[in-house]
């Protein structure tokens, strides 16, 4: 491998890693936001309790 090739290889690996890193960070943010949004609130819990009570009878 010539020094120039090595240089190009390194540069392209670096940019690929950067792109992958950005994708991972974006996924973390998305999953965090989805978790917050989908977290059950009082209304969801009341509905769940009602369903449980319905089955219990």
């Amino acid at each position: 491998m010539t020094p120039e090739e090595q240089e190009r290889l390194k540069a392209s690996q670096k940019s690929r890693n950067k792109a992958l890193g950005l994708v991972l960070v974006a996924l973390v943010v998305l999953f965090f936001a989805l978790t917050i949004v989908r977290f059950p609130d009082a209304e969801d819990r009341a509905q769940y309790e009602a369903e449980l009570a319905e089955q219990g009878r």
Binding site: M1, E5, R8, L9, S12, Q13, S15, R16, A19
Partner: peptide, 8 residues
Amino acid sequence: SVVIPSDW
């Protein structure tokens, strides 16, 4: 020959 990884 060296395979250069594809660009994003």
